[in-house]
């Protein structure tokens, strides 16, 4: 089963990278861009067929390693297995 894990900085945390990307987009005349938050995506392939179990294990991975809970939030997306 494939799982996508999205890591983002928490709301109140300053994101100088996102800020710089926003400034660059505005410099390219995308003046509608109000804000940019940078993040990371991990694509996991799990030898696990049960979506609930895959989610639970992925959350454990986020807590133990993939995200730093001081500054980051995570979001888990379970991809349907190919039929």
């Amino acid at each position: 089963m494939r799982v996508n894990v999205y890591i983002r900085l928490k709301g109140g945390v300053l994101d100088p990278e996102g800020e710089t990307i926003k400034n660059s987009l505005q410099g390219l005349h995308f003046s509608e861009v109000q804000s940019v938050r940078a993040g990371k995506v991990f694509q996991l392939e799990l030898s696990e067929e049960d979506p609930a179990r895959a989610r639970q294990r992925s959350e454990e991975m986020c807590r133990q390693l993939l995200a730093n809970p001081v500054i980051e939030d995570y979001q888990i997306e379970i991809m349907e297995p190919p039929s």
């Binding site: 945390v13 300053l14 100088p16 990278e17 710089t20 730093n68 001081v70 500054i71």
Partner: peptide
């Protein structure tokens, strides 16, 4: 900090 032995986190420099 990552090991939880000190409280807090070290982020990218504000200047990048």
């Amino acid at each position: 900090c990552e090991a939880g032995l000190l409280p807090g986190a070290l982020m990218v420099n504000a200047s990048l």
